[in-house]
């Protein structure tokens, strides 16, 4: 059993004890130190400087903070950084191969699946995961599988088209 950290409860005496933590993000190990209460998204953004992952709500609803944890989409606002130790994290910055966009990114551009771009990193990561899980079989399934990601700009029409298009392309390339 490991006691990773002891900090005092109560907001008035928040002398925060940090614990060392190694996070594996986009194939690279990052040594850092966190308070156990720190959320994965905050550590990714503020300590690792990977600001592509966005925060759009406080209630695990909007999906802007979606990253892959061992290849499955999760909302990084609802994972403690310490819970991610020993796991493989992929963020939007880790998706493209150099200057070549990932097929899902390329499909979002081709289909105009983004406008302001704030929800986009989360939307793309969620899409990568749902395609990987075989959920991109038809429009209805894609819509159901994207319900954890909110967008105000696109009305979702072109996002759904982009996911189906990317899935087709990735299937053809197999």
């Amino acid at each position: 059993m490991t006691e990773l950290a002891e900090t005092t409860n109560g907001t008035d005496t928040a002398v925060a004890a940090t614990v060392p933590l190694t996070l594996r993000v986009n194939g690279k190990d990052h040594d850092t130190a966190v308070e156990p209460r720190e959320l994965l998204v905050d550590v990714i953004r503020e300590r690792l400087g990977l600001t592509g992952t966005n925060v759009g709500c406080e209630t695990t609803s909007c999906g802007a903070c979606t990253v892959l944890l061992d290849d499955r989409s999760v909302k990084s606002c609802t994972v403690l950084a310490v819970q991610a130790q020993g796991r493989e994290i992929t963020t939007i910055e880790g998706l493209a191969d150099g200057n070549t966009l990932h097929p899902v990114q390329a499909a979002f551009q081709r289909c105009h699946g983004l406008q302001c771009g704030f929800c986009t990193p989360g939307m793309v990561m969620a899409s990568v995961s749902l395609i990987d899980e075989g959920r991109a079989t038809d429009e209805k399934s894609v819509r159901a599988a994207l319900k954890g990601n909110l967008c105000r700009c696109t009305g979702y029409h072109n996002i759904v088209a982009a996911v189906l298009s990317a899935a087709d392309e990735m299937e053809a390339d197999k």
Partner: peptide, 9 residues
């Protein structure tokens, strides 16, 4: 506009 937004850059 898209490449910068799609890559988190």
């Amino acid at each position: 506009e898209d490449p910068g937004l799609l890559t988190g850059r």
